[in-house]
Write a protein that binds this DNA or RNA. Structure first.
Lengths: 220, 220
DNA sequence: ATTAATACAGGACAGATGTCTCGGAGGAAA
DNA sequence: TTTCCTCCGAGACATCTGTCCTGTATTAAT
């Protein structure tokens, strides 16, 4: 386990005797890091990569809750409210995750106030952003949410400004709408010269306009 | 300070030397317990009464986030993300609140892992419910949200089941819509015999129907 | 090559919701 | 009492968004 990497991300150093109990696991894109309904077995710390959090609705559709980069902790809600995993965490890039098994937390870290401060900071941050996005989601029309989605998935690894559309259906359920409506908005943007559609991809021609439409809403 | 009351609500006992530093403050209905933009000065523990959490939008409207009863903690987000108060907490009933001044937390409780566990549990619980309501809010039409609002504010203290009409504007912004649309829905419900409007009040005639419409959504 | 199956964009329509506006009720001032 | 002002409910209209459906293109099977 790379101590100094963890230290640089989370500003916390494990005592020597714990490092052997900690697990570092890689995840491939589209692989579930946590799956809703599972029993939680530890506290997960993202070391590298990006993942998305989504939840399954009664309708069977999924709704995007957020994208996460490090520092980001998984499993804390479940452990402290003592419930099954509530949301799916799915890697969207190759990820590395440090897992602290639940027993290790219970026996060694529960009484470590520095470690608890780390968890408190992260939970408070997640709650803060959830509060913000809750309002935004309730008050933003679909075109704003779609623009926000496109701006959110734009990342340094997307060097070209193409976004695969082989999953328009996914995008639709992720932002809580239908593919029909996405198409309507994309057509409108195409006519306005903000994007162009070719084959199975969307090219964003006017990023500044796109950012303007998104009204600074982001899913992160 | 009533030790045993706090113990029974939060399952935590303060050490003797702290009780003199803790403050218990009463709040009247409509009084701000915390006001967005203020500097936070401590951790607030609700002992009795109910308050609502709302946030101010760029538009100047406010949006209802939730109603809270004990056990409920305020100020934790702000302290751990080190930011100004993000949401208004407004008493809706006479409330009693125990305030732990920030210095007291910093010097005595920050290193108290039992106390930190209490905070972690509460934050995780808030995040869990925020996650759930975020989805629900995004996907529920206004009639469901209005019914949910009415079901939420129904409490033992509201012996009469009347809602003042002069606050329809407030209700509208609280659930993120307009008074016009509220009126439309109320008219529909009146025609269906679910409610009746008289003078400046609304009487709910058919609570079971109202609960059915609300689809179990609640602002708490 | 022809046919069948699938997927996808978009037309048509309906329902939900916001904005603008007006007419009536009630209260305050003259 | 008359006039004026304010507030409220609701009509009219526009926009947003979901559902249903169709025509076309692409792919798969024969």
């Amino acid at each position: 386990m790379n101590q100094s990497l963890f230290k640089s991300i989370y500003d916390y150093t494990f005592t020597q005797d714990l490092t052997s109990s900690l697990i570092v696991r890689p995840f491939q894109p589209n692989e579930y890091i946590l799956k809703a309904g599972d029993q939680i077995d530890g506290i997960y710390f993202l070391l590298s990569g990006r993942y998305m959090v989504s939840s399954l609705e009664v309708t069977g559709k999924e709704l995007l809750l957020r994208y996460c980069q490090q520092p980001s902790i998984m499993g804390d809600i479940e452990i402290f409210t003592d419930c099954l995993v509530v949301s799916n965490c799915i890697a969207v890039e190759p990820c590395e995750v440090l897992i602290i098994p639940l027993e290790v937390y219970e026996t060694h870290l529960k009484i470590d106030s520095k470690f608890n401060q780390l968890l408190l900071k992260e939970l408070a941050y997640k709650l803060l952003t959830c509060t913000i996005s809750s309002r935004v989601n309730a008050l933003s029309p679909v075109n704003v949410r779609l623009a926000a989605y496109l701006c959110t998935v734009e990342s340094p690894t997307h060097v070209n400004q193409y976004i695969k559309t082989n999953s328009l259906d996914d995008v639709a359920s992720l932002i809580g709408t239908t593919k029909r409506h996405i198409n309507r908005i994309l057509k409108d943007w195409t006519e306005k010269g903000i994007i162009s559609r070719e084959d199975d991809a969307i090219e964003i021609l006017d990023w500044s306009k796109m950012k303007e439409i998104s009204e600074n809403v982001r899913f992160e």
